[in-house]
């Protein structure tokens, strides 16, 4: 049985289509990542699967239970950590976790083993108000509260947004450990570097999945030549690269530009020469151009551009 099955989910807010037919399966005990920018529809998927909103079309099952009909059963068996910190800021760490434990008819002591790894970070501050915790601590507390009733599926909506890099890393280590305990985890993130930590990922943009596969699978589908260009006048360089006819697309990635070339049959050296020549004609000198391996973000930008142009 799949932990999550979604078939052609549609959600509209007025005239705005947040989800335009999303389908996917999550296997038991896997970390499934939903990767995409803000406003792509990630939160709507989570809210439908956690029975907080009703879909306008399509259907979904969580642990074999229908999200519309059997919502009561689902609420008992899933854990949800919303994107925004949603615990009581005026209650202490301990009061929050005990409160949510009681709402599920359990106690902190009963399921202590489950949250021990995470809660141990928080124990020194257990008398502190939740609102006074740091971003990383808040996130650990939210995860503890989502886990306290021993859920079978965990839904984490952008758990690492606004969290420092060290805490982000710790957080993913915790997720891996939870997965080993048999939990299925559906997690969304706008950070492409976190995508490779998932078993399978779905790339989402404008309410539609661009592709669903393992991170390696997605990357292996990227076959066009990819080059990194960097030079002294980056903004004008970006504009000029995009005007070269052999260039499929070009995006700024940190301090370099990633250039995707159209299929041409040219050798790697010839591709580099082509760019050098074309850019020299526009007055760009001192450029560094080299071939690079694509990452998930390159795949995302490529698929998104492809979608836009079709």
């Amino acid at each position: 049985m799949y932990s999550v099955e979604a078939d052609n989910l549609i959600k509209r807010y007025g005239s705005n289509e947040a989800l335009r037919g999303v389908s996917f399966r999550v296997d038991a005990g896997e970390i499934f990542g939903i990767i995409g920018p803000d406003g792509a529809g990630k939160t709507s998927i989570f809210r439908i699967l956690t029975t907080l909103i009703l879909p306008d079309g399509g259907s979904a099952r969580v642990l074999g239970q229908d999200v519309v009909r059997d919502y009561h059963e689902i609420r008992r068996r899933v854990g949800y950590m919303p994107g925004r910190f949603s615990l009581y800021q005026d209650l202490s760490v301990e009061e929050n976790i005990r409160f949510f434990a009681t709402l599920f008819g359990t106690t902190l002591e009963e399921n202590y083993d489950l949250v021990k790894d995470i809660y141990s970070y928080l124990e020194p501050f257990r008398k502190r108000k939740a609102g006074a915790l740091s971003g990383g601590m808040k996130q650990k507390l939210a995860l503890s509260c989502a886990l306290i009733h021993k859920p079978e599926v965990l839904f984490l909506d952008e758990p690492t947004t606004g969290v420092d890099p060290v805490s982000r890393k710790e957080f993913w280590t915790m997720l891996t450990r939870l997965k080993q305990q048999g939990l299925s985890i559906v997690v969304s993130t706008p950070y492409m570097d976190e995508a490779t930590l998932c078993d399978r990922i779905a790339l989402i943009e404008h309410g539609r999945f661009l592709d669903t596969d393992t991170p390696a699978g997605i990357i292996s589908k990227f076959t066009l030549p990819l080059l990194a260009v960097d030079g002294p006048h980056m903004p004008s360089l970006l504009r000029d690269i995009r005007q070269i006819p052999q260039v499929f697309s070009c995006f700024a990635f940190g301090d370099t530009h990633h250039v995707v070339l159209r299929e041409s049959g040219l050798s790697e050296e010839a591709q580099i020469d082509l760019l050098h020549t074309a850019l020299y004609a526009k007055g760009h000198t001192d450029l560094t151009i080299r071939h690079i391996k694509p990452g998930v973000e390159d795949c995302f930008m490529y698929l998104d551009t492809l979608e836009e142009r079709s």
Binding site: L52, R75, P82, S86, L87, Q89
Partner: peptide
């Protein structure tokens, strides 16, 4: 406004 209602709503209360 605080978002806490979300967390309550996913409970079986």
């Amino acid at each position: 406004e605080a978002g806490t209602i979300e967390q309550i709503n996913v409970t079986p209360v």
